[in-house]
């Protein structure tokens, strides 16, 4: 599940570090062009196993919805913010934790623009810090979803 990197356990299944920053890795079907996350070998739309290629997901997105948890979740300090992010370039919505979300009144709103990053998001019961992907709040309203968003 993870690999040791500078003393941290990294959940590396979902993302890769590149010179240009972290990227989330999904799959894209070369026939129907649909993107899936996490990676799949079979395209559920085409039902073929020879059309999927590894696909780095878009770095920018916007908040579809969100909440702030005040209830402790194992190893994650409270309060923490989480939600769903829509990545328009890939036409996909994924779950994420948020970074740089405070003050919440200014940073957390539906349509908030986000950028992919990675950070420690929890400690496991043995004290290992777990790195995962997160989306950083950029503090500006996205114009991506003005069309078609409910």
């Amino acid at each position: 599940m993870g690999e040791t990197l500078k003393g941290l356990l990294v959940v590396e299944k979902f993302f890769e570090r590149t010179p240009g920053g972290p990227v989330l890795v999904g799959s894209k079907c070369e026939v129907c062009r649909r993107v899936w996350f996490p990676k799949k070998k079979v395209c559920p739309t085409c039902f073929r196993n020879d059309t999927m290629v590894v696909h780095p997901l878009a770095r920018y997105g916007e908040i579809v919805t969100y909440s702030i948890s005040h209830m402790s979740h194992i190893g994650i300090p409270t309060p923490y913010a989480f939600g769903y992010v829509y990545l328009p370039d890939d036409d996909i919505t994924i779950y994420t934790l948020f970074k740089d979300w405070q003050p919440a009144e200014a940073k957390l709103f539906i349509g908030q623009q986000l950028e992919l990053c990675y950070d420690v998001f929890r400690e496991d019961p043995w004290g290992n810090r777990i790195i995962g992907y997160m989306y950083r709040c950029l503090g500006t309203r996205s114009h991506i979803g003005e069309h078609g968003r409910q």
Partner: peptide, 24 residues
């Protein structure tokens, strides 16, 4: 694998739905 390890648990699910309804 996807969501539970990253802080999502049942109250959070419907909290997010509520945010959409309140926002709308």
């Amino acid at each position: 694998m996807m969501e539970g390890t990253m802080g999502l648990f049942p109250p959070g699910i419907f909290a997010m739905v509520a945010q959409q309804y309140l926002s709308a």
